[in-house]
Design a binder for these strands. Structure first.
Lengths: 139, 139
DNA sequence: CTAGTTGCAAAGAGTTTGCATGGCG
DNA sequence: CGCCATGCAAACTCTTTGCAACTAG
């Protein structure tokens, strides 16, 4: 548990709060800090800290080698299953009704309890599908 | 595309075929080769090769830093969404009916096309849930 | 003050690559 | 025999850690 509220920690949590639904790597976070006011090691240490406090979920994207983080401070985000587009990288929420239906059906029929925060459905979003259609990329 | 069928490549594809549903790291594959007849670099090169041939899916597990691979040579495995237990690491198939329902509903209602091979639902399996109950671990 | 936190640089873990050797066809 | 694949070791990338300096409370 963190004892001090340092400038760096504040800076990071603010950054995360404004990118709550995104999956970000340590590198991307650093890039977002245009003044570089937080060192990479402070970033990594704070990420580990926030994760152990349960405010952050560590996940990864198929094909990507780096670890990504998603801020789950607020319940809204923690309770949702996310959809992540392989092409544009954007993240969406699976509608609550769909989420609950899936979680409860799988629990009932497969005896498997889905961890919403760590589950991401990968695929292609509507914008990118439309885009592919236009530009004639193979489906 | 591979031109030669080397001993090493054969060894690896055989290994994969007998662990078709598992998510394995390069390290784990090497460990499974008790005679160490394939070097780490050959493993990595063949993994890359198999992936580009579409016979392998590269994914990762929340919290784990290494890249994992799942063999998707046969359609059976490629078309299924997998359930992976965070505790014991075992992998299960989401029942086909559930899979189709989820994929079609999400496509229809959210305009998002799920990529089955790259999607894994993480959570806790029935065995581990039961185990937790017995040993009294916090739910 | 004084313990927690930071920045830097060095160490680690996992993965990729260059190059000479070896083996498939 | 010729070209592709392998093994080894070195290079890389991303992440973690040791340590002295700094700072929040």
């Amino acid at each position: 548990m963190s004892k001090y509220e340092t400038k760096q920690r504040k800076r990071l949590t603010d950054l995360f709060a404004s990118h709550a639904d995104e999956m970000l790597s340590a590198e991307q976070l650093y890039a977002l800090l245009d003044d570089k006011s937080v060192s990479m090691s402070a970033i990594y240490r704070n990420l580990a800290e926030l994760e152990s406090e349960g405010k952050l979920t560590r996940l990864s994207r198929p094909g990507s080698r780096s670890i990504l983080y998603r801020y789950t401070e607020n319940e809204n985000c923690r309770e949702k299953i996310h959809l992540s587009c392989k092409l544009c990288g954007k993240t969406f929420h699976l509608r609550p009704s769909e989420t609950e239906k899936l979680v409860s059906e799988v629990e009932k029929n497969d005896g498997f309890l889905i961890d919403r925060a760590n589950t991401v459905l990968f695929g292609v979003c509507g914008y990118c599908m439309e885009n592919e259609r236009r530009t004639g990329v193979a489906k």
